[in-house]
């Protein structure tokens, strides 16, 4: 048997570098993050407030989002999961809670981390607030918020909204 008979797989790393565009409709949102302000956008069609303003459009109305709206900083957990699985590229210590958070004044939830409480104590309806990183670490990213933590306020009844986005 020659050496070649043993070759079953070959490793071929592929590297391609891209320029990623946030798009002009995300500008006020990203500038807000640089400033510690949570800026969403209101759809001129259905009047609902998107945070973050996904691609700057309302997927229901197919319209470019309109006015800037400052939301939060507090919000309510609509649903969550406790992550126990390590995976490539993960920057967060296990286990952690990834929650859908509906910021006050926004109409769509966003995903972020919950810390400063036991995973077992996290629940749908829990009120939370952002904990920002040191300002020196800020960039145009939601990563400026290290995590959210419970505020201690009474839970909000999410009722039929539980599990909705």
């Amino acid at each position: 048997m020659s050496e070649a008979d043993g070759i079953m797989r070959l490793r071929q790393p592929i590297s391609v570098t891209y320029n990623w565009s946030a798009g002009p409709n995300a500008t006020s949102h990203l500038n807000g993050l640089l400033d510690g302000t949570l800026v969403g956008k209101r759809c001129p069609g259905c009047s609902l407030v998107y945070f973050p303003p996904r691609n700057g459009v309302c997927p229901k109305c197919a319209r470019i989002l309109g006015d800037d709206v400052v939301v939060g900083p507090r919000g309510t957990i609509t649903t969550f999961c406790v992550v126990n699985v390590p995976f490539l590229g993960q920057k967060i210590k296990l286990p952690y809670v990834a929650a859908q958070i509906l910021l006050d004044g926004a109409d769509i939830s966003m995903q972020h981390l919950i810390q400063e409480c036991e995973a077992a104590d996290v629940r749908i309806g829990m009120r939370v607030e952002p904990v920002w990183k040191d300002r020196s670490e800020w960039g145009p990213s939601l990563e400026n918020i290290a995590h959210f933590r419970p505020t201690g306020e009474p839970d909000r009844d999410m009722g039929v909204e539980a599990g909705a986005s």
Binding site: S21, A22, G23, P24, A26, N55, G56, V57, I64
Partner: peptide
């Protein structure tokens, strides 16, 4: 272009 694909298409 600095647009996202969604902003290109819409």
């Amino acid at each position: 272009s600095t647009l996202t694909s969604v902003e290109l298409i819409l």
